[in-house]
Amino acid sequence: MHKRFGSLHALRGVDLAVEQGEFFALLGPNGAGKTTLINILAGLSRATSGSSAVMGHDVVAAYRETRRALGVVPQELVYDAFFTVREMLRFQSGYFGLKRNDEWIDELLHNLGLEDRANSYTRNLSGGMKRRVLVAQALVHRPPVIVLDEPTAGVDVELRQSLWSFIKRLNRDGHTIMLTTHYLEEAETLCSRVAMLKQGEIVALDTTRNLLGAHAATEVRLKLVPSQLPEGLRAMLVGEEDGCFRLALRHYGELEAVLAGLRVAGVEVRDMEVTKPDLEDVFLQIMEAA
């Protein structure tokens, strides 16, 4: 898929398939094309060339089917100042052809901690509350595919956790989740597969586990007395700062060999810290290389 806005080439041949039931992350710096891609899926924008489909329905030719299949939480904190939370959710249900939906609306309000705010005007809610309303609006028609465009931006820790436990439950129930976020630890813990976009191109697409394994090593930080690394361990050295040596481990088993090497050389360990690689390291590496 390609998307051009005048001279700006926002998507450059993105080719991507998200499987049903996946918890998928779309990552990338600002301006990478994540929201453009989502907007095309949602019908808010049209691809310059190429096509996309949701649950087998083409987003242009069969827009009614794709929009019914899709629940989108937009990135911008938008709201309609004229209406209460419950009115908004009823309207949204009606737009999707649902006449009586109060049971599910109540469940959404409960799960998103909005019960007390059902009759409040959306304009009077805090940013975090407005975000919850957006999530509820996206889920009002029980879409099989849920797209969350930075749903936790500006949201407090408590809501983040309750939001994710609710979304995880929906994922367990079979909903496909596609997520963009700048909080990479969220993507790491939640998503089984990750695509990284940079300047409109996919620069990495793999399972989270493979990406972590291939791009970042577990490291051990050692403070030694005497502060001297035995010759046999030099090959593993990746850095040295504040009198500490950082050694890269391909797996935890190598830690034993490191300790044995130190013992043989008569070097004592004064302090030790093992750090696991995280998606942020991988992300930065990939973005730098791409």
Partner: peptide
């Protein structure tokens, strides 16, 4: 108002013809 405020998405996302 809905265009400027962005709430127009609430009627652009559903399957309204």
């Amino acid at each position: 108002q809905s265009k400027m405020g962005g709430s127009i998405v609430f009627i652009l996302l559903p399957p309204l013809a």
